[in-house]
Design a protein around this nucleic acid. Sequence first.
RNA 1: GCCGGUGUAGCUCAGUUGGCCAGAGCAGCUGAUUUGUAAUCAGCUGGUCGGCGGUUCGAAUCCGUCCACCGGCUCCA
Length: 644
Amino acid sequence: MIHITLPDGSVRDFNAGTTAYEMAKGISEGLARNVLGAKFDGEYIPLDRPITKDGALLLLTWNDEDGKHIFWHTSAHILAAAVEQLYPGVKFGIGPTIENGFYYDIDFLDYPISSDDFPKIEAKMGEIISQRVKMVRSEVSKQEALDYFSKKGDEYKVELIRDLEDGTISFYKTGDFVDLCRGPHLYDTAPIKAFKLLNTAGAYWRGDEKRKQLVRIYAISFPKKKELDDYLLMLEEAKKRDHRKLGKELELFTFSQKVGSGLPIWLPKGAALRERLENFLKKVQKTYGYQQVITPHIGNVELYKLSGHYQKYGADSFRPITTPQEGEEFLLKPMNCPHHCEIYASKPRSYRDLPLRLAEFGTVYRYEQSGELHGLTRVRGFTQDDAHIFCTPDQLKEEFCKVIDIILYIFKVLKFKDYIVQVSLRDPDNKEKYIGSDENWEKAERAIIEAAEEKGLATVVEKGEAAFYGPKLDFMVKDAIGRKWQLGTVQVDYNLPERFELEYISPEQEKLRPVMIHRAPFGSMERFVAVLLEHTAGKFPLWLTPEQVIILPISEKFQEYALKVQKILDMNDIRAIVDERNEKAGRKIRDAEMNKIPFMLIVGEKEESGELVSVREHTVGDKGVFTIADFVSLIKERMKEELE
RNA sequence: GCCGGUGUAGCUCAGUUGGCCAGAGCAGCUGAUUUGUAAUCAGCUGGUCGGCGGUUCGAAUCCGUCCACCGGCUCCA
């Protein structure tokens, strides 16, 4: 008898040599049907391996992340097996699971592959699955593994094996297809009831753009057909929220080939929206003691040589602008910080001046590879809600905490609840990628970690994600399709003050060096609007939305009254438009609903005679009849609540 | 930049194998209707079929090239 501890703490006795699958069956038939894998004392074990000693057993199902990954991992092998049967001689890179599904990187040699080939591959996968193929594990030595794949002519696998530690290496066999794999896998292919190949993409071998590009096939699989259908439906819904689509529909921004790709053009409604966001932040920043500054769109190359940006990014920037007579060189401003350093340096500073907080909605231009451009989230010209805080080392942590407060306030007002806070540190193995002394880096990294702790933020630490001049605290939010976007960022920087030889006079009359905090709560106006659009599906909060109210006269007879109501709303700073078209009320309501205008005021005979409005709320419906004054209070109350 | 895909009216899309002046719905304009909580009716305007070159008696359709966009990769101060 062995004693097996289950996750709920209970202990069950089994005969020594019972397999995990049999144990599942012993617990319940349902569990046995759904079990995908098992962990024994924290280690993955095959379901059919006899267990001979006491220990803790965790049976994995679709409800466990680990269970999903086992499921997808096996699915990836089936994909590869199908591809190998259809395209003999192809070579395989890696086939890992990802957050949603899995992919396999494959060298298709000269076979042309596109999504047109998916049905064929899917059919073959279906065939393999229906044969209920077992996933057979075998263990081989490193040399045997090398021999197998050398003979097969798969140089990618050979390379992977070479990089492995010596010792035992495991293979998994799916029918005739043998793959190098640590596992774990499903017992057999039976649980995979639904799967779909999603798209293809080029992917460099080992992520290195100097190496060969393989074809990556993305796919997903599920234990139930319904789950696949739901997933595909979710992707469809996500598409409807795409900021590029909504931006066009709501007339917020556009792009023009003639203006240039990656250069967004803000339309009147979008510009007004952006302005409101800017004013909102300016107001918050004012209470935190920030001062607005303005700097030019270009700067002398020497400025960026001094800051270090030129050495780091000069080769990948827009080419310098040269003056015709003098041959001076200017760069399109890629960063605001060097300019702000010069504002700091424009006069002698005392410790009494610190912290000095300089803010600017600064438009910067960065060269991005053409294939990188993406709507408003990846552009070549954008406006940062930038600010730089110059303070004493003693003030650093408090200032950092206050910046976190601003960011959290913004997230709260705009209802971003699903966000991740990332501590981005430098890569300790690649220190030459960064500028500045080890001592300063350590100080800066410590300050960030402490401030995040003090604010009680749940953080993830990423090494190698720091800016080249300092570590960062990055705030990412998830968009409609679960992609993560970086929004707010806070960075500590000891380097620029040194490079610009910034100083302040201490109470003891010494010349000391200030510390700098770079921060942008939105990140950039462009990206923020994009993420906000996807987050709200275009239904902006009332205080932010371009048109808050639309007045719908029942017929032309009541247009005059409609205009009168508009005027009253206007005097109360409520943004209202009148639908003066010669259309029926039903039509006007439908169009207003589609345009996502929060409130509709229907006015006709009875409203005009009583100085009233009939209120309809977007997606909610008829709210009844209000006096104009009551409606104004309703709107004001709503906006107040939103900004609390 | 790289791999793959796409590009027809302001928007969404038809237009098998090359062949009459390139189509529809919505939007827009004009007129009729004077309307009460998600589409009133009729008429009209609108496209060098992404650009340029080529093949052909003839190209939206075939070939080349460039551009833009889409899905990724790499990159992202």
